[in-house]
Design a protein around this nucleic acid. Sequence first.
DNA 1: ATCCTCCCCTAC
DNA 2: TAAGGTAGGGGAGGAT
Length: 776
Amino acid sequence: MSLDSARSGGDSSKRSLADSPASKSSSSSNSKRSKTNSKEKALGMAWGANSVSSSRSSSRSSPFSDFGSYMLEKTRKLRQQFDAEASNSSDSSSKNPLFHGVSIFIDGFTIPSNQELRSYMLMYGGRFENYFSRSRVTHIICSNLPDSKRKNMRSFSAGLPVVKPAWILDSVFANRLLDWVPYQLDQLCGNQPPVSAFFSSKRSSMVQDTLEVAGRQLNMDRSFKGGASNYVDLPELHESLVVTEQDALIVRDRHVNADSSRQVGTGMNDEFSDMLDCISVTSNGNPQNGSQNCDIEEPTGSKSSDVRMEVPGNSDTECETTLASRLQLTPEKLHGSVGTHGADNKNPTASSSGVIGLFNQRHSTLGDPNFVENYFKSSRLHFIGTWRSRYWKRYGSRSNDLKTQNANCCVLDASYKTAVIHIDMDCFFVSVVIRNHAELQDKPVAICHSDNPKGTAEVSSANYPARSFGVKAGMFVRAAKARCPHLIIFPYNFQAYEEVADQFYNILHKHCSKVQAVSCDEAFLEVTISTGLDPEFLVSRIRNEILETTGCTASAGIAGNMLMARLATRAAKPNGQCCIPQERVEEHLQLLPIKALPGIGHVLAEKLKKHNIQTCGQLRMISKVMLMLETLRRDFGAKTGEMLWNHSRGLDNRLVGVTQESKSIGAEVNWGVRFKALEDSHRFLADLCKEVSLRLLGCGVRGRTFTLKIKRRRKDAGEPVKYMGCGDCENLSHSMTIPIATDDIGVLQRITKQLFGCFHLGKSAQYSYMFSCSFQ
DNA sequence: ATCCTCCCCTAC
DNA sequence: TAAGGTAGGGGAGGAT
Ligand SMILES: Nc1ccn([C@H]2C[C@H](O)[C@@H](COP(=O)(O)OP(=O)(O)OP(=O)(O)O)O2)c(=O)n1
Ligand SMILES: [Mg+2]
Ligand SMILES: [Mg+2]
């Protein structure tokens, strides 16, 4: 279960208090995070998440002038980015710069989208302003004018021409700049312009092109014709472009993809479904495809192939067909069908590590009264998950101050250029642990809780020799040992990771004023190139210093934006650095597997694969040929489509150092969670409430929206593949917003009880919980 | 249109 | 035996 507290409107006073520099004085003295700190004895405070100081990110407390300079900085940066893209894109170099002297500002929703229009300007020699400026903008592009603006046309447009997007499209098609006057927005009609020639005539030939590239794409698009946009790609659908009120034609069922799991969540009437537990034996042989629920089963670096490697010699598959779970939550009173689960309860089952018999109760909520607290002390994911809040406590205010300063001085000097650096420690957990073992550097080493060659403990990090055997983070140790029998396993040393992370960030802050932390071993830097220091040189100095100080190597990437810098780092690893200048972006992306883009995981990658898209080059070509962004948007959603469009071109508008304040705080445990009676469950929930309450206090925030999430073992799921794991679960959640934000543990507990009631949980299933809150 | 709830996906 | 957490982004669909 997880309790999630959303931010609250009512907590503003508390917030502003927390924002004041003075408020962090008490906790900042904890920065050494010694284990003796009494705060760390708090539940789940193994790594001090609860004692995080109350310093907040700058955005809320910034005076308005800061915001102004931020905006100046941002516009300047966006402009610079546009120029860089324009001057280096091979697309543009080969095209007629027909928009030379034209600088557009997009007002409101347009068809096609502003990103597409931007890319036309990019490709054909024009300019694009993200923010309106009377002096810079030459044309305002607008599809639709709301009444308010129509009434005061002159002040809205500042006297500039307000033109329909078709002007741009038709100009591109004509390969010359057309007169904009016929395309002036017709104020009387106020409707979407008629279809431009561009769409009607050119369309079909482009579709042909597409077919060569991605055979199935066309079919997909056809089925999506009723999507949220009128931007269609087939001739016969043209009419919808003429439609004026954009959404008039929206069809109800926007591609409800085969997400059967959703129904489980929303149909809360499963009260009696548990009775089926003993009957339904299941065929859950293929966890990958069954549903999109993220089941935590048999994790491996590379999915199904690993599953296959895993299975032989073990009872994993048998487990899935054994009768469903012994029931763990047993409210005796509830209904009568006790017999079945009772029998299950006694059945010995093959356990995850091949050992027959019951699990050790001390490894679960049943045997350890301090289970949650102890669990968090050993959890690597808890460690990396809470690291950020500890970082904020140490560097938050300082980096904020510098950030502001930096932004101001940038504004004064508009002539400089910036480079983005991404730096990431090599196989961090392993490097730290073997940094003083020279003899191990060439041996395959991994970090894991267990060295059991049959075990289901997860590899946290593997060094590069181990990776050459196929050992990857997230893999079960038995799979790792199967691939690399001589793999050397070391235990975790969280304190050492914390110390090295500190050293790492101390070095980064010393060399650069703009540092954006990503994780304990990874950060972005932004540097100005015109200050003379070559970024390559700076990076090698930083990496050297990291090696000398920590005994561990780091790799780094240098590029024009965060996306490309990150990809450069990947190319540089291990122990290297790599620069991807603008003119090399395209070649770098061309053959890169789509999955390598940050933000594209296995689900999205599979979806794209069904469209015959496997590389960034293909994605770029498809989206361009298909004209364009709207196709991606229909298939993947507005934002995701845009992300695909941008990332496949190496575009990334994010600015280094812009981090917003946190939106939510939560706690969850999905390992070792076993209940016999309802009260076990409530006790556990109370522990999570305590944890969340302490974290709220530690951060100086109060929650207003609380969420309880429950993972319920599927009826047809067998014993979890992973020892003490939660198995194949469906995810449920309910939330509640209260009028006055709180951090009071008593209130939290009452809230969880009430939320818990909303689920109407049956008796014969196993659950684990998460409780979190958000702050509005 | 925009907000809200209940999810899913992603990254470390 | 083993320690499958945390937080943000975003989509679908219903309420307003
Ligand atoms: N599934 C994962 C991924 C990461 N980590 C931890 C261990 C890693 O050492 C640390 C940093 O993650 P990275 O993705 O940076 O991986 P590494 O630093 O281990 O390797 P690389 O050289 O690829 O950066 O986070 C983990 O416990 N489990
Ligand atoms: Mg790393
Ligand atoms: Mg990393």
